[in-house]
Each structure stands twice: as structure tokens, then as C-alpha cells.
Amino acid sequence: MKKMSIVWVPILLSLLLLVGCSSTPTSEGGADVSEQSTGADGSDAYGDGASTSAASQGSEWQGDPLENPNGLLATRVIYFDFDLSTVRSDYMDVIQAHADYLAANPQVVVRLEGHADEKGTREYNLGLGENRANAVRSLMLAQGVSDNQLVVVSYGEERPAAFEHNDESWALNRRVELIY
């Protein structure tokens, strides 16, 4: 997934977008499961693709802003400090960009998946992950996003993005993923 070529990213994204638009948050089934994992991995791909795209294109992005690999919307993971669920100031412009996009596209639903590192107990971490997702949600609501566009799910420490037992992995696991 990480080596995904830039050509595929917009296609994949539009597919994701379609799935996101057609399914309501309350009736999610097995299909959404793969959507989440694809979305999560896909967010890395935008980072990889960014330089390639900038070098070869060098022009204004024409398509859906959500698909722009150079835009703020390409950032789909927000990381948190240990044991905290306050959004770091360096993510404010990213959240603002997502909020603007969502406010302009009221039919789009985004899943805010909250995660924690493995330190501490699992059920407490479920609460911590939810607090993180809710922190992002509150900011978006304050910026004009409608409540029914935001679905909060906490996975606590059950779905790590990195598997080592060290500070680097823990930092990667304390996160909220935005899944369109």
C-alpha cells in the first residue's frame, strides 16, 4: 500500500468517497471495515505521492480538493501527546481545511477514529481514544460542520498503526484518523 503509485490514489479516493457518501454511519457493515483499513493506509500514500506529484505537475489542482495530494486535506491522521486529548496547535490548519471542506460539502460524512497507545489499560484507552476523536469533532463543529457529517468511533489501543513497544511506535499510535 505504501508504494501505491500516484495514478491510483485519486481513483481509490473517489471510490472511498462514493462508499462514504452512500453508506449511513449507523448501518455500517463488513464493507466499511475494509474501507477503514484502506483509508488508513492510503493516508500514507498521499504523503509518498506528494513530491512526485509536485515535481511532475507544478500546476493548480483541478479536481476534488479531497484528492489533492499537496493540499491540507491530504493529511488524514492527527497525532496526540501522551495521555492528552487536546489537539496540538500545529494541526489546527489541517482541521480547519477539513472543516471547510465538510461545510462546503454537507453530503460528505467523515469517520473520526480515535486511537491510543498501548500504555495503560484497554478500556480506559477506549475512553481516551474517544476523547481524542471528540476533540477533533468539537473543533469541526465549531467551524460549521454539521453533526450528522461526523461519526466518532474509538478503537482505543486495539488497532495499532505501529507495533513496536517504544516511544516512536506509541507516538504513531496516539492518533485520530479521518476516514472519508
Binding site: 455500517e28 463488513g30 466499511d32 468511533v153
Partner: peptide
């Protein structure tokens, strides 16, 4: 037990 099948707990 808690299960996340279906995308939420």
C-alpha cells in the same frame, strides 16, 4: 465481551 464487528463497539 466487546466486539467491533460492523465498525463500532
Amino acid at each position: 465481551y466487546v466486539s467491533f464487528e460492523g465498525g463500532q463497539s
